[in-house]
Design a protein around this nucleic acid. Structure first.
Lengths: 160, 160
DNA sequence: AAAGAGACGTTATTCTATTACTCTTTTGCC
DNA sequence: GGCAAAAGAGTAATAGAATAACGTCTCTTT
Protein backbone atom coordinates (compact mmCIF):
# COMPACT_ATOMS: atom_id res chain seq x y z
CA UNK A 1 0.00 0.00 0.00
CA UNK A 2 2.63 2.50 1.02
CA UNK A 3 4.71 3.49 -1.97
CA UNK A 4 8.16 4.84 -1.21
CA UNK A 5 8.25 8.40 -2.30
CA UNK A 6 10.93 10.15 -4.29
CA UNK A 7 13.21 12.34 -2.22
CA UNK A 8 13.75 15.89 -3.02
CA UNK A 9 17.32 15.29 -4.07
CA UNK A 10 18.98 18.20 -2.29
CA UNK A 11 20.21 17.02 1.06
CA UNK A 12 17.83 14.64 2.62
CA UNK A 13 20.43 12.17 3.80
CA UNK A 14 22.22 15.05 5.37
CA UNK A 15 19.01 16.09 7.11
CA UNK A 16 18.64 12.62 8.51
CA UNK A 17 22.24 12.60 9.60
CA UNK A 18 21.98 15.91 11.38
CA UNK A 19 18.73 14.89 13.04
CA UNK A 20 20.47 11.82 14.38
CA UNK A 21 23.43 13.82 15.61
CA UNK A 22 21.09 16.18 17.34
CA UNK A 23 19.31 13.24 18.91
CA UNK A 24 22.62 11.85 20.14
CA UNK A 25 23.49 15.15 21.75
CA UNK A 26 20.07 15.57 23.25
CA UNK A 27 20.00 12.12 24.79
CA UNK A 28 23.49 12.58 26.19
CA UNK A 29 22.36 15.82 27.77
CA UNK A 30 19.27 14.19 29.24
CA UNK A 31 21.21 11.20 30.48
CA UNK A 32 19.09 8.72 28.53
CA UNK A 33 20.34 6.02 26.20
CA UNK A 34 19.81 6.25 22.47
CA UNK A 35 20.62 2.59 21.86
CA UNK A 36 21.40 1.12 18.47
CA UNK A 37 17.82 -0.08 18.06
CA UNK A 38 16.27 3.20 19.08
CA UNK A 39 18.64 5.08 16.86
CA UNK A 40 17.83 2.83 13.94
CA UNK A 41 14.10 3.32 14.43
CA UNK A 42 14.58 7.06 14.61
CA UNK A 43 16.63 6.91 11.42
CA UNK A 44 13.90 5.00 9.62
CA UNK A 45 11.28 7.47 10.73
CA UNK A 46 13.45 10.33 9.55
CA UNK A 47 14.29 8.69 6.25
CA UNK A 48 10.64 8.51 5.36
CA UNK A 49 9.04 11.63 4.07
CA UNK A 50 5.71 10.31 5.14
CA UNK A 51 4.42 9.31 8.53
CA UNK A 52 5.56 5.75 9.06
CA UNK A 53 3.50 3.01 10.67
CA UNK A 54 4.94 0.84 13.43
CA UNK A 55 4.50 -2.21 11.26
CA UNK A 56 6.32 -0.56 8.39
CA UNK A 57 9.28 -0.10 10.69
CA UNK A 58 8.86 -3.65 11.87
CA UNK A 59 9.01 -4.90 8.30
CA UNK A 60 12.27 -3.11 7.61
CA UNK A 61 13.88 -4.32 10.80
CA UNK A 62 12.77 -7.87 10.13
CA UNK A 63 14.18 -7.81 6.66
CA UNK A 64 17.56 -6.45 7.61
CA UNK A 65 17.95 -8.63 10.67
CA UNK A 66 16.95 -11.89 9.07
CA UNK A 67 15.07 -12.87 12.21
CA UNK A 68 11.66 -11.26 12.22
CA UNK A 69 11.30 -8.64 14.89
CA UNK A 70 8.17 -8.54 17.01
CA UNK A 71 5.87 -5.58 17.67
CA UNK A 72 7.02 -4.78 21.21
CA UNK A 73 10.52 -4.18 19.91
CA UNK A 74 9.30 -1.36 17.73
CA UNK A 75 6.71 0.01 20.11
CA UNK A 76 9.19 0.23 22.94
CA UNK A 77 11.60 2.13 20.78
CA UNK A 78 8.83 4.44 19.63
CA UNK A 79 7.68 5.00 23.21
CA UNK A 80 11.18 6.04 24.13
CA UNK A 81 11.42 8.40 21.18
CA UNK A 82 8.01 9.88 21.96
CA UNK A 83 8.86 10.41 25.61
CA UNK A 84 12.01 12.20 24.67
CA UNK A 85 10.36 14.33 22.06
CA UNK A 86 12.27 12.88 19.13
CA UNK A 87 9.21 11.77 17.22
CA UNK A 88 5.54 12.65 17.14
CA UNK A 89 2.61 10.35 16.73
CA UNK A 90 -0.09 11.21 14.22
CA UNK A 91 -3.25 9.82 15.78
CA UNK A 92 -5.36 10.15 12.66
CA UNK A 93 -2.91 7.99 10.71
CA UNK A 94 -1.62 5.66 13.39
CA UNK A 95 1.83 6.67 12.28
CA UNK A 96 4.95 8.44 13.39
CA UNK A 97 7.10 11.30 12.13
CA UNK A 98 10.43 12.71 13.21
CA UNK A 99 10.24 15.85 15.28
CA UNK A 100 11.79 18.93 13.75
CA UNK A 101 12.45 20.72 16.99
CA UNK A 102 13.37 18.12 19.58
CA UNK A 103 15.42 20.61 21.52
CA UNK A 104 12.42 21.99 23.35
CA UNK A 105 9.23 20.36 24.58
CA UNK A 106 6.23 21.15 22.42
CA UNK A 107 3.34 19.65 20.57
CA UNK A 108 3.30 20.56 16.98
CA UNK A 109 0.50 20.94 14.56
CA UNK A 110 0.62 18.72 11.51
CA UNK A 111 -0.33 19.42 7.93
CA UNK A 112 -0.90 16.15 6.09
CA UNK A 113 -1.14 16.21 2.32
CA UNK A 114 -3.82 13.86 1.06
CA UNK A 115 -1.98 13.58 -2.23
CA UNK A 116 1.67 12.96 -1.41
CA UNK A 117 1.10 12.06 2.24
CA UNK A 118 3.87 14.31 3.42
CA UNK A 119 3.48 15.65 6.94
CA UNK A 120 4.64 19.16 7.65
CA UNK A 121 5.17 20.09 11.27
CA UNK A 122 3.97 23.54 12.20
CA UNK A 123 4.57 25.37 15.41
CA UNK A 124 2.22 28.28 15.48
CA UNK A 125 1.71 29.83 18.87
CA UNK A 126 -1.36 31.56 17.45
CA UNK A 127 -3.07 28.20 16.98
CA UNK A 128 -2.20 26.92 20.43
CA UNK A 129 -3.32 30.17 21.95
CA UNK A 130 -6.61 30.15 20.11
CA UNK A 131 -7.21 26.65 21.43
CA UNK A 132 -6.33 27.54 25.00
CA UNK A 133 -8.55 30.60 24.80
CA UNK A 134 -11.42 28.62 23.31
CA UNK A 135 -11.14 25.98 26.00
CA UNK A 136 -11.13 28.62 28.68
CA UNK A 137 -14.56 29.80 27.56
CA UNK A 138 -15.95 26.53 28.95
CA UNK A 139 -13.59 26.32 31.91
CA UNK A 140 -11.44 23.62 30.38
CA UNK A 141 -7.74 23.43 31.23
CA UNK A 142 -5.62 22.36 28.28
CA UNK A 143 -2.85 19.84 28.89
CA UNK A 144 -2.22 18.40 25.46
CA UNK A 145 -3.16 19.22 21.90
CA UNK A 146 -3.68 16.99 18.89
CA UNK A 147 -3.95 19.12 15.78
CA UNK A 148 -3.87 17.24 12.50
CA UNK A 149 -4.89 18.98 9.31
CA UNK A 150 -5.51 17.24 6.01
CA UNK A 151 -5.44 19.05 2.73
CA UNK A 152 -3.13 19.78 -0.16
CA UNK A 153 0.48 20.87 0.19
CA UNK A 154 1.82 23.66 -1.97
CA UNK A 155 3.67 21.31 -4.34
CA UNK A 156 0.66 19.08 -4.94
CA UNK A 157 -1.67 21.98 -5.45
CA UNK A 158 0.60 23.43 -8.12
CA UNK A 159 0.92 20.04 -9.78
CA UNK A 160 -2.86 19.80 -10.00
CA UNK B 1 -12.29 -0.95 31.32
CA UNK B 2 -14.92 1.59 30.42
CA UNK B 3 -17.02 2.40 33.45
CA UNK B 4 -20.49 3.77 32.75
CA UNK B 5 -20.61 7.25 34.08
CA UNK B 6 -23.31 8.85 36.17
CA UNK B 7 -25.63 11.13 34.25
CA UNK B 8 -26.21 14.62 35.29
CA UNK B 9 -29.80 13.94 36.27
CA UNK B 10 -31.41 16.97 34.72
CA UNK B 11 -32.65 16.01 31.33
CA UNK B 12 -30.26 13.74 29.61
CA UNK B 13 -32.86 11.34 28.31
CA UNK B 14 -34.68 14.29 26.90
CA UNK B 15 -31.46 15.46 25.25
CA UNK B 16 -31.06 12.06 23.63
CA UNK B 17 -34.67 12.08 22.56
CA UNK B 18 -34.44 15.48 20.96
CA UNK B 19 -31.18 14.59 19.26
CA UNK B 20 -32.91 11.58 17.72
CA UNK B 21 -35.88 13.62 16.60
CA UNK B 22 -33.57 16.10 15.03
CA UNK B 23 -31.75 13.25 13.28
CA UNK B 24 -35.07 11.92 11.98
CA UNK B 25 -35.96 15.28 10.56
CA UNK B 26 -32.54 15.82 9.09
CA UNK B 27 -32.45 12.47 7.36
CA UNK B 28 -35.94 12.96 5.98
CA UNK B 29 -34.86 16.29 4.58
CA UNK B 30 -31.74 14.77 3.02
CA UNK B 31 -33.66 11.84 1.61
CA UNK B 32 -31.53 9.27 3.41
CA UNK B 33 -32.76 6.45 5.59
CA UNK B 34 -32.22 6.47 9.32
CA UNK B 35 -32.97 2.78 9.71
CA UNK B 36 -33.72 1.12 13.03
CA UNK B 37 -30.15 -0.06 13.36
CA UNK B 38 -28.63 3.30 12.52
CA UNK B 39 -31.01 5.01 14.86
CA UNK B 40 -30.19 2.60 17.65
CA UNK B 41 -26.45 3.15 17.18
CA UNK B 42 -26.96 6.89 17.23
CA UNK B 43 -29.01 6.54 20.39
CA UNK B 44 -26.26 4.55 22.08
CA UNK B 45 -23.66 7.11 21.12
CA UNK B 46 -25.83 9.88 22.47
CA UNK B 47 -26.67 8.04 25.67
CA UNK B 48 -23.02 7.83 26.55
CA UNK B 49 -21.44 10.88 28.01
CA UNK B 50 -18.11 9.66 26.87
CA UNK B 51 -16.79 8.87 23.43
CA UNK B 52 -17.91 5.32 22.68
CA UNK B 53 -15.82 2.70 20.92
CA UNK B 54 -17.25 0.71 18.04
CA UNK B 55 -16.78 -2.47 20.02
CA UNK B 56 -18.63 -1.01 22.99
CA UNK B 57 -21.58 -0.43 20.71
CA UNK B 58 -21.14 -3.91 19.33
CA UNK B 59 -21.28 -5.38 22.82
CA UNK B 60 -24.54 -3.64 23.62
CA UNK B 61 -26.13 -4.68 20.35
CA UNK B 62 -25.01 -8.25 20.81
CA UNK B 63 -26.41 -8.40 24.30
CA UNK B 64 -29.79 -7.02 23.42
CA UNK B 65 -30.15 -9.02 20.24
CA UNK B 66 -29.12 -12.36 21.62
CA UNK B 67 -27.29 -13.11 18.39
CA UNK B 68 -23.88 -11.50 18.51
CA UNK B 69 -23.52 -8.71 16.01
CA UNK B 70 -20.39 -8.46 13.92
CA UNK B 71 -18.10 -5.44 13.44
CA UNK B 72 -19.27 -4.46 9.94
CA UNK B 73 -22.77 -3.98 11.27
CA UNK B 74 -21.60 -1.28 13.61
CA UNK B 75 -19.02 0.25 11.31
CA UNK B 76 -21.51 0.61 8.50
CA UNK B 77 -23.95 2.36 10.77
CA UNK B 78 -21.19 4.61 12.06
CA UNK B 79 -20.05 5.40 8.52
CA UNK B 80 -23.56 6.45 7.65
CA UNK B 81 -23.82 8.63 10.74
CA UNK B 82 -20.44 10.19 10.04
CA UNK B 83 -21.28 10.92 6.44
CA UNK B 84 -24.46 12.62 7.48
CA UNK B 85 -22.80 14.62 10.20
CA UNK B 86 -24.70 12.99 13.04
CA UNK B 87 -21.62 11.79 14.89
CA UNK B 88 -17.96 12.69 15.02
CA UNK B 89 -14.99 10.39 15.29
CA UNK B 90 -12.30 11.10 17.84
CA UNK B 91 -9.13 9.82 16.22
CA UNK B 92 -7.02 9.97 19.34
CA UNK B 93 -9.45 7.68 21.17
CA UNK B 94 -10.74 5.51 18.35
CA UNK B 95 -14.17 6.45 19.53
CA UNK B 96 -17.33 8.26 18.51
CA UNK B 97 -19.50 11.03 19.94
CA UNK B 98 -22.83 12.49 18.97
CA UNK B 99 -22.67 15.74 17.07
CA UNK B 100 -24.24 18.72 18.78
CA UNK B 101 -24.92 20.70 15.65
CA UNK B 102 -25.84 18.23 12.92
CA UNK B 103 -27.91 20.83 11.14
CA UNK B 104 -24.91 22.32 9.39
CA UNK B 105 -21.72 20.79 8.06
CA UNK B 106 -18.72 21.48 10.26
CA UNK B 107 -15.82 19.90 12.01
CA UNK B 108 -15.75 20.58 15.67
CA UNK B 109 -12.95 20.82 18.10
CA UNK B 110 -13.05 18.42 21.02
CA UNK B 111 -12.10 18.91 24.63
CA UNK B 112 -11.51 15.54 26.26
CA UNK B 113 -11.26 15.39 30.03
CA UNK B 114 -8.58 12.99 31.16
CA UNK B 115 -10.42 12.47 34.44
CA UNK B 116 -14.07 11.88 33.57
CA UNK B 117 -13.48 11.23 29.86
CA UNK B 118 -16.26 13.52 28.82
CA UNK B 119 -15.89 15.08 25.39
CA UNK B 120 -17.06 18.63 24.89
CA UNK B 121 -17.59 19.77 21.35
CA UNK B 122 -16.41 23.25 20.62
CA UNK B 123 -17.03 25.28 17.52
CA UNK B 124 -14.69 28.20 17.63
CA UNK B 125 -14.17 29.93 14.33
CA UNK B 126 -11.11 31.58 15.85
CA UNK B 127 -9.40 28.21 16.14
CA UNK B 128 -10.26 27.13 12.61
CA UNK B 129 -9.15 30.46 11.28
CA UNK B 130 -5.86 30.34 13.12
CA UNK B 131 -5.25 26.93 11.60
CA UNK B 132 -6.13 28.03 8.08
CA UNK B 133 -3.93 31.08 8.46
CA UNK B 134 -1.06 29.03 9.85
CA UNK B 135 -1.34 26.54 7.01
CA UNK B 136 -1.34 29.34 4.48
CA UNK B 137 2.09 30.46 5.68
CA UNK B 138 3.48 27.30 4.08
CA UNK B 139 1.13 27.26 1.11
CA UNK B 140 -1.01 24.45 2.47
CA UNK B 141 -4.71 24.29 1.60
CA UNK B 142 -6.82 23.05 4.48
CA UNK B 143 -9.57 20.56 3.72
CA UNK B 144 -10.21 18.92 7.06
CA UNK B 145 -9.27 19.54 10.66
CA UNK B 146 -8.73 17.14 13.54
CA UNK B 147 -8.48 19.09 16.77
CA UNK B 148 -8.55 17.02 19.93
CA UNK B 149 -7.53 18.57 23.20
CA UNK B 150 -6.90 16.65 26.42
CA UNK B 151 -6.99 18.27 29.82
CA UNK B 152 -9.30 18.81 32.75
CA UNK B 153 -12.90 19.90 32.46
CA UNK B 154 -14.26 22.53 34.80
CA UNK B 155 -16.09 20.05 37.01
CA UNK B 156 -13.08 17.80 37.48
CA UNK B 157 -10.76 20.68 38.15
CA UNK B 158 -13.01 21.95 40.91
CA UNK B 159 -13.33 18.47 42.37
CA UNK B 160 -9.54 18.21 42.54
C1' DA C 1 -44.49 -10.05 -10.53
C1' DA C 2 -39.61 -8.88 -11.81
C1' DA C 3 -35.57 -6.06 -11.50
C1' DG C 4 -32.51 -3.27 -9.13
C1' DA C 5 -30.67 -0.91 -5.25
C1' DG C 6 -29.75 -0.40 -0.66
C1' DA C 7 -29.18 -2.37 3.82
C1' DC C 8 -27.76 -5.99 6.61
C1' DG C 9 -25.66 -10.72 8.00
C1' DT C 10 -21.57 -13.65 8.07
C1' DT C 11 -16.90 -15.21 7.85
C1' DA C 12 -12.43 -14.27 7.54
C1' DT C 13 -8.63 -11.35 7.63
C1' DT C 14 -5.72 -7.26 8.23
C1' DC C 15 -3.75 -3.75 10.89
C1' DT C 16 -2.55 -1.67 15.35
C1' DA C 17 -1.09 -2.23 20.04
C1' DT C 18 -0.30 -4.41 24.58
C1' DT C 19 0.59 -8.05 28.25
C1' DA C 20 3.48 -11.16 30.42
C1' DC C 21 7.48 -13.44 30.77
C1' DT C 22 12.40 -14.45 29.75
C1' DC C 23 17.02 -13.45 28.77
C1' DT C 24 20.81 -10.33 27.91
C1' DT C 25 23.37 -6.19 28.40
C1' DT C 26 24.75 -2.24 30.78
C1' DT C 27 25.68 0.32 34.77
C1' DG C 28 27.00 1.53 39.31
C1' DC C 29 29.27 0.09 43.25
C1' DC C 30 32.48 -2.37 46.17
C1' DG D 1 37.76 -6.82 38.03
C1' DG D 2 33.51 -8.84 40.02
C1' DC D 3 28.83 -8.56 41.17
C1' DA D 4 24.08 -7.13 42.00
C1' DA D 5 20.53 -4.21 40.23
C1' DA D 6 18.35 -2.09 36.60
C1' DA D 7 17.49 -1.18 31.94
C1' DG D 8 16.93 -2.99 27.45
C1' DA D 9 15.47 -6.34 24.18
C1' DG D 10 13.56 -11.11 22.55
C1' DT D 11 9.43 -14.03 22.37
C1' DA D 12 4.73 -15.78 22.43
C1' DA D 13 0.28 -14.86 22.98
C1' DT D 14 -3.53 -11.90 22.90
C1' DA D 15 -6.42 -7.75 22.74
C1' DG D 16 -8.45 -4.08 20.14
C1' DA D 17 -9.81 -1.55 15.81
C1' DA D 18 -11.20 -1.82 11.11
C1' DT D 19 -12.07 -3.75 6.56
C1' DA D 20 -12.79 -7.19 2.58
C1' DA D 21 -15.55 -10.22 0.27
C1' DC D 22 -19.58 -12.44 -0.38
C1' DG D 23 -24.39 -13.70 0.36
C1' DT D 24 -29.14 -12.63 1.58
C1' DC D 25 -33.08 -10.00 2.43
C1' DT D 26 -36.23 -6.24 1.73
C1' DC D 27 -37.82 -2.52 -0.09
C1' DT D 28 -39.18 0.32 -3.98
C1' DT D 29 -40.16 1.20 -8.71
C1' DT D 30 -41.68 -0.18 -12.69
Amino acid sequence: MKTPLACRPHDHSRCVHSALSEADALCARQGVRLTALRRRVLELVWQSHKPLGAYDILAVLSEEDGRRAAPPTVYRALDFLLENGLVHRIASLNAFVGCNHPEHAHQGQFLICRQCHTAIELEQPAISEAIVAGARTVGFTVEGQTVEIVGLCAACREAA
